[in-house]
């Protein structure tokens, strides 16, 4: 164990975890909207929209995140048509390629989580609203959505933690996130054990915080 290396690389890895958290939060927020959008498509009784949303979730849950990020980053970069279009402004940047891949991936899982949450709402809640003459829109926003969010909190907390670990793939498209910087330090010191132990501990610490935040939210919104 090289204690000096551990002390030296700790601050570098800590500042790299800011990039990791940025990637995580931006993609989770975009992914949440995507997930909500597709979940609503699934519960509306429209066969075409439902199938479309199902196909999306099926494709993104059924392929590895690494493959998705490679297709978006290296794959699209090879297509001349895309390179000459306005899309290239975004796809040129590794940061946005990673965000797109992460958001689409977590969006697929989120849509499943929210869909099942919507479907488990007891019909009695909705009927109670209807019998009071509450408009359908208000029932949806004030009754269905809040209950669905509460129902899906434990599963969604899990998804955040899975995505946190997923962000480590950003280093494969040249981003200097926690894993990227860890690999960089190893490439000059040739000591993987020390560096990966610290990087792993930082990931563990972030997981610990996310876990407890979700737990607190669950408690707050329990009924």
């Amino acid at each position: 164990m090289d204690i000096e290396l551990i002390l030296n690389s700790f601050p570098k890895l800590l500042s790299a975890s800011v990039t990791t958290l940025k990637l995580l939060s931006v993609s989770m927020i975009i992914g949440l909207f995507i997930g909500l959008f597709f979940a609503i498509m699934r519960i509306k009784n429209n066969i075409f929209l439902g199938k479309l949303a199902y196909a999306y979730s099926y494709i993104f849950r059924g392929t590895p995140l690494l493959v998705q990020i490679f297709i978006i980053y290296y794959g699209f970069g090879q297509v001349e048509y895309i390179r000459e279009s306005f899309l290239w402004v975004i796809l040129k940047e590794p940061y946005w390629c990673a965000i797109i891949a992460f958001a689409l991936n977590t969006g697929a899982y989120t849509s499943e989580i929210l869909r099942s949450a919507f479907q488990t709402i007891k019909p009695g809640f909705i009927e109670a609203g209807k019998s009071l003459g509450v408009p359908n829109k208000i029932i949806f926003y004030k009754i269905q959505i809040p209950i669905a969010i509460r129902q899906s909190l434990p599963a969604y907390g899990n998804e955040i933690i899975l995505m946190l670990k997923g962000t480590s793939l950003a280093s494969t498209v040249t981003l200097m996130d926690l894993t990227g910087v860890a690999k960089f330090i190893i490439s000059t010191t040739f000591k993987p054990i020390e560096v990966f132990i610290i990087a792993g501990s930082i990931y563990l610490f972030i997981t610990f915080i996310i876990h407890n935040l979700i737990k607190a939210l669950e408690k707050k919104y329990s009924f």
């Binding site: 290296y74 970069g77 090879q78 390179r83 040129k92 590794p94 494969t172 040249t174």
Partner: peptide, 18 residues
């Protein structure tokens, strides 16, 4: 500087214009 895992990846991104 932007660093890649393999030289193949460097070549791909040089060709793509990144």
């Amino acid at each position: 500087v932007r660093t890649y895992k393999t030289q193949d990846d460097v070549n791909l991104d040089l060709a793509s214009g990144r």
